[in-house]
């Protein structure tokens, strides 16, 4: 409890310091912040989110991941990924290395489009380029299932997001501003819960640290409810009684860009169990 008071104090300093630094400084500061706040958590274990903070939950996770109840869904995603388009090509043709070890490079800043492009947006671009109908970005039964498989092709790859040039930097800064902006009737920022209070319980729920939050999507909540990263953003927006932004909006894409950069160096692991 004593630690909580100190951590709250630290968090205030943290938020103001982060507000002035470049991406790599941000990332290092965040790691240092969590190292002092949650000294028991090893860096590579941040990918487990709240589970890294609770032994029982982590061992529940480990046993569920041995035979995940959602393997069938991932199989379905594999079929979608491998099914040829009308022109005979497949998704693999749109990505370097057939889509293996690519997800860690996302989101990427596209200088010609002058905006942040997510893995999902490039999947839609692939459909479009091959004369197929695009998926709705928020549709878990198409895009969700497909990426539940497609992202497994990058398992083990280290996150490697780049912020190069003024326009990319502006998008990054926009995402950062979003992250620290208080919103909603309850007046929370993302940082209130996942930086300042990471490791604390809100009611019975342990709050996961921001670090590692972008590495393991989609998740299957309660082992069955497929949830994408940006639909989780929506959920967290609603919790604070704010009007949620849309999956695929520039706001969420920039937020994902900012958050993903902080996870550079952490390994990806797709389609995991969450409570």
């Amino acid at each position: 409890m004593k630690k909580i008071a100190l951590a709250l104090l630290g968090a205030g300093l943290m938020a103001s310091a982060v507000a002035q630094a470049g991406p790599e400084d941000d990332r290092k500061q965040l790691i240092a912040h969590f190292k002092s706040k949650l000294p028991a958590v090893k860096y590579e274990n941040y990918v487990y989110g709240a589970l890294a903070l609770d032994k029982d939950s982590k061992s529940q996770y480990d046993s569920i991941m041995e035979f995940p109840p959602f393997v069938g869904v991932i199989e379905g995603g594999k079929e979608m990924w491998e099914k040829p388009f009308k022109n005979g090509k497949t998704f693999a043709s749109c990505f370097p290395n057939g889509g293996k070890n690519v997800a860690g490079n996302y989101p990427r800043f596209d200088a010609s489009l002058n905006k942040v492009v997510t893995f999902e947006a490039d999947i839609n671009q692939c459909l479009k380029a091959n004369g197929e109908t695009e998926f709705k970005l928020s549709d878990v039964n198409t895009m969700g299932i497909l990426t539940a498989y497609a992202r497994t092709l990058s398992d083990g790859m280290k996150k490697n997001v780049k912020v190069e040039g003024a326009a990319a930097m502006a998008a990054y800064e926009d995402g950062k501003k979003f992250y620290f902006q208080r919103r909603g009737q309850l007046n929370f920022s993302c940082a209130t819960c996942h930086v300042d209070n990471a490791g604390n319980r809100i009611r019975a729920e342990v709050l996961s640290p921001m670090l590692g939050q972008t590495t393991h999507w989609p998740v299957f909540r309660a082992g069955e409810r497929l949830t994408t990263l940006q639909s989780r953003y929506k959920g967290c927006n609603s919790q604070v009684r704010a009007v949620p932004f849309e999956v695929g909006s520039d706001e969420f894409n920039n937020l994902e860009y900012f958050m993903s950069y902080q996870d550079n160096g952490l390994p990806l692991k797709a389609s995991v169990f969450r409570k």
Partner: peptide, 13 residues
């Protein structure tokens, strides 16, 4: 100003 506590009256919670 840094508090996590929602402003119960000010925001009409």
């Amino acid at each position: 100003p840094q508090t996590s506590m929602p402003p119960m009256g000010k925001h009409e919670i």
